[in-house]
Design a binder for these strands. Sequence first.
DNA 1: CGGCTTTGACCCGCGC
DNA 2: GCGCGGGTCAAAGCCG
Length: 235
Amino acid sequence: MEMLNQGLMEGLSSSQIGFYLNSTNLNNYSPPPLGTNHHHHQQQQQSDDLKPLNHNHSNYYLQSSFTLDHVTSTLTKAASREDDYLSVNYNLWSAAWGEGTKGLFQLGGSKRSCNGEDDYPNYVGVSAVKMKKIKGRRKVREPRFCFKTMSDVDVLDDGYKWRKYGQKVVKNTLHPRSYYRCTQDNCRVKKRVERLAEDPRMVITSYEGRHVHSPSNDLDESQGGTQPQLNNFFW
DNA sequence: CGGCTTTGACCCGCGC
DNA sequence: GCGCGGGTCAAAGCCG
């Protein structure tokens, strides 16, 4: 559980991370309590983690301390719900503030506002879950989300093993985009890594799909006949 | 030799 | 229909 935070959130403490969500078109989304399906996790808060910040603007924020897998599992559910019920595109942005940082970050669309002193110190943002409905047909799309991290390394350690299967230059960008697939057979999760054009210090990591297994840490604890932990890390 | 990356080709959806 | 942009394939290369 710790390695993720090491890889993704340098400068942030692993458990004390606050999020501020601003969803652009996420009008009717009422996220499930984060503690719902987390049997293994002890003492989750029930519904205080994610609640509307502003009903009119459909902003959501996550408060109190939680780890990234809380956020990502929530985003996964959100993505599924959007695909199943609403079928609208939406952007879901969030950002984290590190310790010692006063202001909240707020991301909406392309413009960014921040009432903190300086821009993203120890920035970690979760952003843009876009589910597209395919032409009338109710096609089940794999849940997707991505997040930004300020990082020197492109490929962040998320506990899973990936094999690169492609690289593309994206238009109007200096940096290429890399395509990865989960190496576990029967697992079709894909991952894209690229650098933000406007700010190459930021790495954008996108995930698509749901792992059917636990992270392939050597000697993980998932033995004992339990089902794969879907709320682990990202999926 | 096995697993992974590299890299041009191929493919496909979309806008004009 | 055509071309462009982006996603994937797969052969070849790299490395332990």
